[in-house]
Nucleic acid binder design. Structure first.
Lengths: 141, 141
DNA sequence: TGGAGTTGTATGCGTTTGCATCTACCTTAA
DNA sequence: TTAAGGTAGATGCAAACGCATACAACTCCA
């Protein structure tokens, strides 16, 4: 077992443990964690996002994401319109209500995240962010 | 946004990107990535594992895991028997075929993991393993 | 200009998931 | 010994998922 494999296994365990902990917190209201992930991703972008772009951030298959956006649109949290420049595509953004929902859930969740990661030193936090950032940006050659 | 939140977001992003990449690799055969996770976890333990113990490692609800084990038992990859000491519980272990399957998939997958994480320096790999290990072990107070 | 190939998203369909709940077994203490 | 409460997994059911594929719009070159 290489160091790389050990690191990846460790990362996966940390992810599983923390995800379970966050999921168990009573902050999600009428939104699942996966749905929140979409709302959060949209909240970070001022300009509307394409499905395919959103799909890069979210761990869901393209059809699953497409239908999840359907539901979020039906529930009035997300606005979807055809991209005028490329009429195959869509532009997604939060509705005011979607933004409100994201913020109301985001606040307590962010506190949970802070609490959970505060077992790390500031230096470790910086290292973790830098290393995982590097991983996320690496493209397959 | 605190450093902790940035680090967590970065970790999530790295996880999503790499999971998608691994999932796209053509190494999984008749087993899904989630099923492989179970087979792999079982493969690391020589003594049979309890459902609840397994469930701590795998990102699935208890009922979903219960049924997934059902399927793996039906397919002859996992052996399940009642725990003689506590007859509510079960003891899970790989069958010889399960172990074979795990290894056959594990080999090429491990290579993918190594390739993906080799964008990091050896020192970064050690830091990542140490930091995520610390996170995984931290229990809520 | 048009036909072939590509890309972005949606849909049909069988499988898997999570939530709530159930059952069976263990533990404690009266 | 037994009733009350707790814990380990299993099951009913509706919702959500992934795979394959369909469809529409774009691109590019003949």
């Amino acid at each position: 077992m290489t160091r790389a494999n050990e690191a990846w296994e460790s990362l996966m365990r940390a992810y599983a443990v923390l995800m379970k902990r966050f999921n168990a917190e009573d902050v999600w209201g009428e939104v699942t964690m996966r749905e929140y992930d979409v709302l959060y991703t949209l909240s970070k972008c001022d300009s509307p996002l394409r499905m395919s772009e959103l799909n890069r951030h979210v761990l869901l298959s393209q059809p699953a994401l497409s239908r999840m956006v359907d539901r979020l649109v039906d529930r009035g949290l997300v606005h979807r319109c055809t991209d005028p420049g490329d009429r195959r595509g869509v532009r997604l953004s939060l509705t005011p209500e979607g933004r409100k929902t994201q913020q109301e859930i985001g606040r307590p969740h962010a506190r949970s995240v802070t609490r959970a990661l505060n077992v790390l030193t500031p230096e470790e936090l910086s290292q973790l962010a830098a290393i995982t950032g590097k991983l996320a940006q690496s493209e397959e050659k």
